[in-house]
Simulated scan of single mutants.
Amino acid sequence: MRKLFITALASTLFFMFCGSAFAHFGMLIPQKSIITPEKKSTELKLSFSHPFEGQGMNLVKPKKFSVFYEGKETDLIPSLKEAKVMDHDSFKIEYKFKRPGMYTFYMEPVVYPEPAEDNYIIHYTKTVVSAFNEGEDWNKPLGVKTEIVPLTRPWGNYAGNVFQGVVLLDGKPAPFTRVEVELYNKDSKYKAPYECMVTQEVLCDENGVFTFACPKAGWWGFAALNDADYKIEGKDVELGAVLWIEMLPYKNN
Rank of each mutant, 00 (worst) to 15 (best):
S20V: 02
A116E: 14
Y194T: 13
F17I: 06
I29R: 07
N119D: 09
H123E: 00
N185Q: 03
E114V: 15
K81I: 04
K172G: 05
D229Q: 13
L225M: 15
A174P: 14
I93G: 07
I122D: 01
Y184F: 11
P173A: 06
L13S: 09
V237S: 06
E73V: 14
S33P: 00
V111H: 13
T199E: 03
P150S: 04
R99A: 09
A224K: 05
F212P: 08
L203S: 15
E195C: 11
F22E: 15
S130I: 03
K189Y: 10
V149P: 08
A174W: 10
P175F: 00
P215F: 08
N161Y: 05
L4H: 15
Y184Q: 05
I34S: 08
A159I: 01
L151P: 05
E108L: 11
E117P: 14
K251A: 12
K61D: 10
Y190H: 12
V237M: 05
P30A: 08
C204P: 06
G56L: 06
I35G: 03
C214A: 14
Y194V: 11
Y95F: 13
L168C: 05
E38P: 15
L142A: 08
E53A: 07
N161H: 01
D236M: 13
Y106H: 14
P150G: 03
A228T: 05
Y184M: 02
D170T: 04
G56M: 07
V181Q: 03
D75E: 12
M102K: 13
D89G: 12
Y158E: 11
Y250G: 14
A131V: 04
F163R: 00
H24A: 09
A21E: 12
D118C: 12
M1W: 03
K98P: 00
H50Y: 12
Y124P: 06
I121P: 14
E117F: 07
F91C: 07
L243D: 06
